[in-house]
Simulated scan of single mutants.
Amino acid sequence: MISKIAFIIMAFVAVACSMQEPGAPQADFETLIADCQAPCSVEFKDLSTNKGVYNWKYDWSFKDSTSFSLEQNPVLNFSKAGKYQVVLTISNAKYGSDTAEKTITITAPIAPEAEFLVTGNNCQAPCEVGFTNLSKNAKTFKWEFGDSSAVKTEQSPKHTFNKAGTFKVILTAFIETVSDTAAKVVTIITASKVLEADFDIVAKDTTRPDSAVYSFVNKSKNATSYLWDFGDKSQVKADSPTHAFPRTAKDVTYNISLSAISGSEMKKKTRALIIKKK
């Protein structure tokens, strides 16, 4: 008759053997991500059963390809979209091996659409132009202004153009490795030169009894030609002329006018000059 102690020993051995002598192993795994847009990382979790207490070897590979990991629960980076057949092989010298295969789908990111609005175009240099980003499905941006200035990465920057000209502004919108570009031409015009008419009157010889001679010093700006009217029915085209005014029996006031001309534009300046009587 078997003693109680012997029965307990036999039961313990049976339990221990059952823990170390599992049935045939069954490889299985899952991925811990529901939606993966390239580039992305995917974590693989081993769910294999009947491995008992033995050490098992893990071999993760793409079907018809070499291994990419020997870890039990690896993480793999996918840089491109596509369908990938992943195979897990578990093996043990005593129980052999088993494999599980699943298809992993990596989707392509939604393509960005680059677009922007320009405000302040056709301004006189130097001037600041604003750019409003209207891009869709983008995360980062690169702005090139076509004037040899540094690239900007702001979403909606402002930029100062220091010289006149036409500049091709390019916006590149990125989402991960996918990009799209939009371009617009910005026109910066030359600052117009303000036309000004001005002069000084300088006495040259006022001691004569019959006349007084004055010089007219031209101080006009940005003109290409000049017309003087001395108020005595005489005119002259000159830069800084000299003119004699006759003396009469009474004081006479002459309205001296200078017309400064540039193309079709003209500015006029008038000053009064009193010539004393004889």
Rank of each mutant, 00 (worst) to 15 (best):
W143E: 07
P22N: 11
N137I: 03
W143Q: 08
K237W: 03
I175W: 03
F167E: 03
T166H: 01
V217A: 06
T103F: 00
A183V: 11
T89M: 03
E71N: 07
G146T: 07
V169M: 02
I201R: 02
F131M: 03
K136G: 04
S79T: 06
T31A: 12
V252P: 01
Y84K: 04
G263A: 07
W143I: 06
I9N: 02
P241M: 11
K193Q: 15
N50V: 12
M266A: 11
T248Y: 14
K152T: 03
D64A: 13
P112S: 05
G23R: 06
F216M: 01
D64L: 10
R247G: 09
P112C: 04
K45H: 10
D180R: 01
I9Q: 07
R271L: 15
P74N: 06
A238M: 07
E176H: 07
N133T: 04
A125M: 04
S97H: 13
K83N: 15
P25C: 10
L171M: 04
V252I: 13
F145W: 03
T99A: 15
K83C: 06
A6Y: 07
M10V: 14
S220T: 04
F161V: 03
I8E: 12
S69H: 01
A238E: 12
T160M: 03
S148T: 12
Q155N: 01
E154N: 10
I175T: 13
Y95T: 03
R208M: 06
S65V: 00
T224Y: 04
T107M: 14
F116Q: 06
V185A: 08
L47Y: 04
T105Y: 08
V118M: 11
S192D: 13
D239M: 10
C36P: 08
T160R: 12
G231Y: 09
P209I: 13
Q20C: 08
S41T: 14
A138H: 02
Q85M: 07
T166S: 12
F145N: 05
A191F: 09
N137V: 02
T242Q: 14
A125L: 04
N162V: 11
F174R: 01
K276R: 12
T253C: 05
T99W: 08
E196G: 00
Q72Y: 00
S234E: 15
Y254F: 14
E43R: 14
T140D: 13
T119E: 15
S135D: 08
G263F: 06
T242V: 14
W143M: 09
F245L: 05
T107C: 10
S179L: 07
T99P: 02
Q26F: 02
V169K: 01
D98V: 11
K45V: 09
D35G: 05
N218Y: 08
P209D: 14
Y254G: 01
D232H: 01
A125P: 02
T224A: 13
M266G: 00
W56H: 01
V118D: 12
V75I: 09
G96M: 10
C40F: 09
